[in-house]
Design a protein around this nucleic acid. Sequence first.
DNA 1: CATAAAAGTGAGTGATCACTCATTTTCAAT
DNA 2: ATTGAAAATGAGTGATCACTCACTTTTATG
Lengths: 219, 219
Amino acid sequence: MTKSLEPWMEELLQGDPTAPRTAKQARIFEAAIEIFAEKGYAASSTSEIAQRAGVAEGTIFRHFKTKKDLLLSIVTPAMVKLLAPFLLREFKDVLSRDYDSFDQLLRALIDNRITFLQQNRRLFKIVVQELPFHPDLQKQLQQLVFNEMKGRFERIIHKLQGEGKLIDLPSFTIMRLSAFSILGYVLFRSILEPQAGSDWDDALEREATIQFIMKGLAP
Amino acid sequence: MTKSLEPWMEELLQGDPTAPRTAKQARIFEAAIEIFAEKGYAASSTSEIAQRAGVAEGTIFRHFKTKKDLLLSIVTPAMVKLLAPFLLREFKDVLSRDYDSFDQLLRALIDNRITFLQQNRRLFKIVVQELPFHPDLQKQLQQLVFNEMKGRFERIIHKLQGEGKLIDLPSFTIMRLSAFSILGYVLFRSILEPQAGSDWDDALEREATIQFIMKGLAP
DNA sequence: CATAAAAGTGAGTGATCACTCATTTTCAAT
DNA sequence: ATTGAAAATGAGTGATCACTCACTTTTATG
């Protein structure tokens, strides 16, 4: 009954065609991620990327047809990885463990994504920054979210609603409210946490966020 | 006891030094806002702005020293206007009307900002897009939010907490949770509302958001 | 070791960039 | 109507852009 994934998703999730073919290609990747995150895609020059990667400018264009091709080969896998836990096998680890309470599910989700976002801040920033300007990226993300994730979450939400453990709102609304509460936590955490003199109490903020969502979505 | 505002804030809020000196300057403003929002600041060229404004390229640099100066003269007033209701006189209209319930306050806040954001989507987009790349803008915003808004909200939150109408969390946490719930509503609304075939039920979503925040922040 | 393919190079290319400036046009005050 | 300053112009400038290509170096394979 479940529709199979698009080919480009399959590829990204199992094989790893993204894996650098060469040491220099790997350095180009790293340099591009750094510089795109620092100055934005449009303000980054291929010459600067080449310089930071310790590579001739021509080498970039051996591996990537255009500058935009370089961006896409960074962003497309990044989007998939950002949402990977909600897809396929990894999804089962987090979501189909038959949580009987909503807060267990929430804690699992938050814990799961916090670690990833901490380690992939620059990738996340690039995705968010460039998404509004590249309709093809928007379509890819929309496909991931609406075709793959939406149904999976809906099943769980409906199950919890049937058991009287969750407010009776459209699943879309529940996802929106939960996602943005978590997003706010993750965003402030990643901005304030590393700052000196910041009074961010992570344990308190995380628990407050979970309690907030749970109480807000109680039946 | 209240510290007075920075000079540049005062100026922006009462006098209007932003007002175009000339018809052509006004057209440059409009064209720049359009194009910056469409392609992002770095990917926009002054020649294209001039073309869309129906003006010679040199005319832009009569009125604005540099391209970045043009951006700042758009973004700085935009930030102030975005937060204006929380400052000075306008602030009183919304917040110091001595709301005795939290949901009245929330409804007032949401109603107040919805209209503005609907009419100023492009300005909002430019601010959000460019903020990460311009530390001077970040400092301006930080000043507005932390020096001016924070204290005002804290007073109201503490008052409601004293009356047992609000959960006992740090006011910062309460603001964060409320703000991101509203942001999610506003964002989805502005993305989905105008789309054909979208099943966005605005009244339901708005009420769900308000109820969500209220229940989540109940004592 | 031989050899061909793949990886890497960097000077070169036309296009476009933000910005300048000598000149012309507009226009308000007399 | 005269005039002087401000507004507007657009051809021109050097810098930088993404990208190419003839060429050299590295690597994999028999």
